[in-house]
């Protein structure tokens, strides 16, 4: 609860998401109420199949077939056309994926510049912005590498740079460290933590309880519902060299 009094970035009321019909109907989300304020760093935890990723997809407007209400920056989204939703995605949302999802045939720089394309920026402006963003992630000299020439940690930093390049109001991260070793994970989490300190709103899905240390709010989900919702001050991250025991922060995670 580090924020002052900004309007809620996200406001969910009784959000439901159904898969299948009739007898086979199954609610992946079964009445989620959630309010996210600007500048929060939320970690969403929970067992597989509890609806974490589904929730993230809905928050990211990738999935529009829902019941209940979703307001983004005070704007109800149910009424918006797909085209308008795409524009919102391009201007207000940054994605970070577990499997990085860079486009393999584009250079690092072009990958980072990609979201700006759909915002309508001119090419030179796009590349300049992307280059500037990469420098803040200390990847300035890797601009013209292809994604497969980078390590996993570097690729994910590129992906974060890409998520940030259009200055979104929310960053959605789906297990950003899921494919990385602990050292690389640590660096990525440092970056996200850094972004949080700069005032960005971050929503992260994770399996790793340790990572919740970085968050300002931890939500656990179970069977499509929010189980627990805990606010806390993000703790000082463990030093880089220290090996991370998984159970060290479990109490805070739950």
């Amino acid at each position: 609860m580090t924020e002052k009094t900004p309007p809620p970035v996200i406001e969910l009321t009784n959000l439901k998401k159904r898969f299948g019909i009739g007898d086979a109907a199954h609610y992946a989300l079964d009445g989620v109420d959630l309010t996210v304020k600007k500048g929060e760093f939320i970690a969403i935890m929970g067992p597989s199949g509890c609806g974490k990723t589904t929730l993230l997809n809905i928050l990211g407007l990738l999935d529009g077939q829902v019941e209940g209400s979703y307001k983004l920056n005070g704007q109800p989204l149910e009424s918006l056309s797909r085209r308008k939703q795409s524009h919102i995605r391009s201007e207000q949302i940054g994605f970070v994926f577990q499997s990085f999802n860079l486009i393999p045939r584009l250079t690092v720089l072009e990958n980072v510049a990609l979201p700006l394309l759909y915002k309508g920026d001119l090419k030179i402006k796009r590349l300049k912005k992307a280059s500037k963003m990469l420098k803040t992630f200390h990847l300035g000299e890797r601009e013209f590498y292809m994604p497969h020439q980078l390590s996993g940690g570097q690729v994910q930093r590129v992906a974060i740079a890409r998520a940030l390049v259009n200055e979104p109001s929310i960053i959605l991260a789906d297990e950003p460290t899921g494919n990385l070793d602990s050292n690389a994970s640590h660096i990525i989490m440092e970056e996200l933590s850094e972004l949080h300190k700069k005032g960005n709103t971050i929503i992260m899905v994770t399996h790793n309880p340790y990572l919740t240390t970085y968050a300002s709010r931890v939500i656990t989900m179970l069977d499509g519902k929010i189980d627990t919702d805990t606010f806390h001050l993000p703790s000082t991250p463990a030093p880089y060299s220290e090996k991370i025991p998984l159970n060290k922060t479990e109490s805070e995670g739950a």
């Binding site: 990738l62 085209r83 795409s86 524009h87 995605r89 391009s90 979201p115 759909y118 259009n166």
Partner: peptide, 12 residues
Amino acid sequence: GIRKAMGATNST
């Protein structure tokens, strides 16, 4: 999928 997540519309 990536392009759509980055804000590409169906028509683009």
